[in-house]
Amino acid sequence: MISFYMFAFIAVVASLLVIAQRNPIYSVLLLIASFGALSALYVLLDAPFVAVIQIIVYAGAIMVLFLFVVMLLNAPHEDTEYDERVHPLLRPGPMRFGAGLAVALVVELWWALGRGGESGSFAGGSVTSVAAIGRSLFTDYAFPFEVTSILILVAMVGAVLLARREEPR
């Protein structure tokens, strides 16, 4: 009970700091902390498979890729034309609409969830085993699983092609 609120607090605060940082390296490191807290929440939800995948794939692979690109580009600081000290809601142009939209989204989601009434607590199920997930993945979800491999192949080829330096002819 108390651990849910602790990890939820860590996840929200770390995510807020991610978008408050001006230096992308700190953003990436804080996002790894947020993913760690989310992984703990998955453990609380009896989903150990997702928790481990979250750490290995997200924190281990994707975030290291981000960190690698941030260090490769070596352009840490955001270049902004507006005054840094102005509150984001008071800045000109689309930024104000964007921040307003985010606030509206929070209010609406809160309202919608509040109207839903008392959603029941969790049924007394057991931990979803990795074996059950694997069986379902290779029987019911076999076709999407194979399509995923093509998606990964396309992404790999695309990434290599896009990031390649163009040869002068």
Binding site: V12, I19, E78, P94, F97, A102, L105, V106
Partner: peptide, 28 residues
């Protein structure tokens, strides 16, 4: 209860949305 997880998820989603609009850095 389930609604607390949904509220946390809504808050994280809104933070992400705000980040897309407020930040001026492609990596962020």
């Amino acid at each position: 209860p389930l609604s607390h997880y949904l509220l946390l998820s809504a808050m994280l989603f809104s933070i992400g949305t705000a980040g897309v609009f407020v930040r001026r850095n492609l990596i962020t």
